[in-house]
């Protein structure tokens, strides 16, 4: 067993690298991967070097190559492989890249305290969906909201509210997926109302307002219609809004 120490160490190293590369989604940044692999290399080396016999067994195959005792083919592969790997590794780091510049963008920006709605000021703090007050009419409003959604929103946000409508692939950032727990279910309805009513151009600068294809819905829908559509996107995606009571106190 001990005579295979080097091979086992190499295989372990490669297996861990493959695991990091293939199994972790979304892929980790290259800099993080480098740190992890340095730690993995150190770990393996410390384990190997901790025991003199193990260390000698680890070095044996390498010595065999450099001393010319290993089979000719293995010698050639190793001796040619090391400079090629070094060159290739360097090339990967120095090769010019023409990827699009990275643009930081805040996905859920801090909402303002108040917004303009058709010329009047609307306070967002503590704002509730007024249509939820009367439970008896809630179903009627949601049905109406469904019609509004499918005449205005589903081209991008999709039939199943998953952000994958037939226009979705033409826009970056991609339309919000309302089924995702990271979107409307973690937001208050007042936030959603602000995002719907003021659209992409209403975003603060850090959220790249020039990129979002979200229309300014107060130009097309009444205040009431926006609230109805919001009722539907929650009902349709099976999520519930975050409420003001649950919100952390500041």
């Amino acid at each position: 067993m001990q005579r295979w120490t080097f091979h086992i160490a190499l295989c372990l190293w490669l297996a861990i690298l493959a695991g990091f590369k293939l199994l972790i989604r979304p892929p980790m940044p290259a800099s993080v991967l480098t740190i992890y692999m340095v730690l993995v290399t150190l770990g393996i080396m410390i384990f190997v070097a901790a025991n003199e016999a193990r260390f000698q067994a680890f070095l044996a195959p390498l010595k065999a190559v450099f001393e010319g005792r290993a089979p000719k083919l293995v010698q050639a592969l190793v001796l040619a492989g090391i400079p090629l790997l070094a060159a290739w590794g360097t090339w990967l780091r120095t090769a010019p890249s023409y990827d699009a510049p990275f643009e930081a963008r805040v996905v859920h920006p801090q909402p303002p305290l108040a917004m303009q709605l058709s010329g009047k000021k609307l306070n967002l703090a503590g704002l509730q969906n007024p249509l939820r007050a009367n439970a008896a009419d809630l179903d009627k409003h949601t049905v109406e909201g469904k019609r509004i959604y499918y005449q205005n929103c589903f081209y991008c946000h999709g039939d199943a509210l998953a952000g994958d409508g037939h226009f979705a692939n033409a826009f970056t950032p991609i339309p919000a997926n309302f089924r995702d727990v990271g979107t409307i279910s973690m937001l208050q309805e007042s936030f959603v109302f602000w995002r719907v009513a003021t659209g992409g151009p209403g975003l603060p600068k850090g959220a790249a307002p020039w990129l979002s294809a979200m229309p300014v819905w107060q130009n097309f829908l009444s205040e009431d219609e926006i609230w109805k559509a919001i009722l539907y996107i929650y009902a349709g995606s099976g999520s519930t809004p975050r409420t003001w009571e649950e919100a952390p106190k500041k």
Partner: peptide
């Protein structure tokens, strides 16, 4: 949506020097 147009620089000869150098060093 917005995309980018990039006049791609001519690939300078020098960018091959580092990989070659490190290969020969090894």
């Amino acid at each position: 949506t917005w995309y980018y147009l990039l006049p791609q620089p001519k690939t300078p000869f020098t960018i091959y020097l580092w990989p070659l150098g490190l290969g020969f060093l090894a």
